[in-house]
Design a binder for these strands. Structure first.
Length: 109
DNA sequence: CTAATGACGACAC
DNA sequence: CGTGTCGCCATTA
């Protein structure tokens, strides 16, 4: 399990700076599979049952619209609260200002 | 090996 | 402008 693809996703997600967010598509593109946005989400989905001493900041990964599609995988509003706590602006209750806090992995990884 | 699924994305209607 | 449908690629059944 945990193919290189997964580790790749985990590494990118782990590099997301606080107060910044990125999209599934951006990560996928960074990994080489531009159309593998679904795979990124799938990889993160596996990370739920994956035990880690230091959980990955998956809450900083949103879809291209900035919507917290993964909020359902976090208890309560943990995802929204954490992002808000890091200084991320919200255009809506569950939508971040992706345009101002977008972080491109390709420019930093 | 074939079929189905998925924390998405883009396009069609 | 909101909804629906297909495509994308890896993993699982």
């Amino acid at each position: 399990m945990s193919s290189d693809f997964y580790r790749n996703v985990y590494r990118v997600v782990a590099e997301i700076p606080e107060g910044k967010v990125t999209t599934y598509g951006a990560i996928a593109t960074c990994l080489g599979v531009a159309s593998g946005a679904r795979m990124v989400g799938y990889a993160l989905n596996q990370l739920i049952h994956e035990k880690s001493d230091e959980p990955l900041p998956a809450h900083r990964v949103v879809n291209r619209l900035g919507q917290l599609t993964g909020r359902a995988w976090f208890p309560g509003d943990t995802m929204r609260e954490r992002l808000e706590q890091e200084g991320v602006r919200f255009t809506e209750e569950y939508t971040v200002d992706i345009d101002k806090h977008f972080w491109d992995p390709g420019l930093n990884i």
